[in-house]
Design a protein around this nucleic acid. Sequence first.
DNA 1: GCTGTTATAATTGTCAGTCCATTTGACCTT
DNA 2: AAGGTCAAATGGACTGACAATTATAACAGC
Lengths: 240, 240
Amino acid sequence: MFEPVKNQRVSDEILQQIREAVLTGKFQIGDRLPNERTLAEQFAASRTSVREALRGLEQQGVIYTKKGVTGGAFVADLDHRLVSRSFQTLLKLRKVSINHIAEARLIFEPEAARLAALRASPQDLNELEEVIEKMNSVVEAGNPPNLFDLKFHKLVARAAGNPILEMLADSMLEVASQVISDLHPSLEVLRHVVKRHRQVFEAIRSKDGDLAFTLMSQHIVDVQRRLGPANGNRRKVRSK
Amino acid sequence: MFEPVKNQRVSDEILQQIREAVLTGKFQIGDRLPNERTLAEQFAASRTSVREALRGLEQQGVIYTKKGVTGGAFVADLDHRLVSRSFQTLLKLRKVSINHIAEARLIFEPEAARLAALRASPQDLNELEEVIEKMNSVVEAGNPPNLFDLKFHKLVARAAGNPILEMLADSMLEVASQVISDLHPSLEVLRHVVKRHRQVFEAIRSKDGDLAFTLMSQHIVDVQRRLGPANGNRRKVRSK
DNA sequence: GCTGTTATAATTGTCAGTCCATTTGACCTT
DNA sequence: AAGGTCAAATGGACTGACAATTATAACAGC
């Protein structure tokens, strides 16, 4: 019924005002905010409070800061990573199991592959191919290819042209990859993964959405099956 | 090739360390962190830097602070609201459209319904039924039922037994529902929604996953079709 | 014995001021 | 020209002090 009269910290009030100014376009992407001392003066507050506000905005991804004479606080170009980061924190803190992630991936990634087949730009295709080849050479050199494996899946999600799918992929893969890389898969397994990536890529390139969907599905189930023995209770559902 | 030797702010280093400690469970939800002066001492840094770190963690939703003698920084029980908020920020900045949300819903909600049919507990079923009836009476009384509509979809996601789906539903639906409620749907439309919810519920209760999937799919497409005319540029892809 | 009031201590919140570090561009020297 | 030096602007860090808030303990009055 009644609102708290005034309880906010000074730094919160400042944060709010700057955030609003940025969100309503009073500052454009890349614009530099007034320097800390000026802001403190304008808000009739101490530099300390201004700085605390700026740290908060930085964490929100709204601004970034640079040092030096040309430095200052600049308006950042917000993208889906903003959501990704908070979602990741949530996943980590809530200790979501690897099985839950696998299940969610199995829902999203095949659809992402299907959409990618319909929407991928030439540049998307180039990047996909490039990352597959990189993974291949790293694998053949006997090194762990986690990063490129990850990147492939992220690129597919990006090619799907829906930032929500992209942010989902980013969040879940980031969390899952830590677990997966701990398994130290064999050379044979890794070669198979590369092969699968190539197949998915070909399906996307030839705009065969259904095929891309199916292949991605199989790929994820494959990898998941390999993880399976390590943690028992997967796929007990679906059997119906 | 070479990494930057050391560039981080003191406050960032502190933020990182505390965040890690919380994420790895060294501090449990509700635990109180040492007070600012102690932290400053432990990190061999000033209180200012510690405070900047705390402001950052607060924005991440990892901690919250209270004043007074029993006050301090406490590990927060992170929930979806943070993700929702960043979602809404992106929506405001038009980095995400309502169509993207619709597309994502169409991917995961039917699957959630299928899983719910297989996994829903008796209590889930009770709650689902209850919320449908509530929505029905609100609709018949001529009031807007946004909250109960929302709740139904969230409950389905929860009944699916995968916290990731639940978090997603919580974050995305919040945003979607605002847009939908702005359309002030007619009594007729609302009655139809209630009917559809009942059908989905029946499918879940009778453990018919495929039926639940199909019905939920249709339901979302239905609602989406009604939104369609209001904002032109949906489905412009796919046509190729 | 209960109730309301008053100290008191712990803690965050805020401030002003100082100095340091980094970065860039202007100026100067060779 | 090339390279070095210096000055200025800016964020980064620290210090010490005080204010505001909150729970608890002690106390006074009835």
